[in-house]
């Protein structure tokens, strides 16, 4: 991969332009790394790459071994693994709800406790997600319970 760096004193905000035949996994990771410092994740939808602000992410879930980022309006795909996303997201605002899902705490609308120790979350989007017993303790700690 060729990298050109142009320094210009008149530039107020750094700009990255990627010229490529197709968006490979390497490029996506590069974009993710660039977005990480800007508090953003990259997600793909209809072949286009989008930068998503952390606060817009409601939850991230796995389906058929593929990872999807859910925002209020759209669903984006990401090539990153769950643990990689977990590292990029702010720990205070996100938590692992079960083996396949990361949840944004700010986007939880309501919580229903179940008798077996699990928690049923209703998200701002109306989606329902389970917090398994294994991860419920971490969630309790995060919300100060």
């Amino acid at each position: 991969m060729k990298i050109h760096i142009i320094q210009d004193e008149n530039v107020t905000e750094p700009e990255v332009t990627v010229v490529c035949r197709e968006i490979s996994e390497d490029i996506r990771r590069l974009l993710d790394a660039a977005g990480h410092k800007e508090n953003r994740l990259t997600g793909t939808m209809d072949g286009q790459v989008f930068l998503l602000r952390h606060e817009d992410v409601i939850y991230i879930d796995t389906a058929d071994k593929r990872m999807f980022i859910y925002t209020r309006e759209q669903v984006y795909e990401t090539p990153l693994r769950l643990y990689e996303l977990e590292e990029q997201l702010p720990q205070a605002d996100f938590f692992r709800a079960n083996k396949s899902c990361i949840v944004g705490i700010r986007h939880i609308r309501s919580i229903k406790a179940d008798i077996d120790g699990r928690l049923l979350l209703t998200m701002d989007s109306g989606d329902k997600l389970w917090v398994s017993r294994q991860y419920a303790a971490d969630f309790r700690k995060k919300i100060g319970m």
């Binding site: 919580i111 406790a113 995060k142 919300i143």
Partner: peptide, 10 residues
């Protein structure tokens, strides 16, 4: 209890 703590967190 969960809901109260969540509201406080938010």
């Amino acid at each position: 209890q969960y809901q109260d703590k969540l509201d406080m967190f938010r």
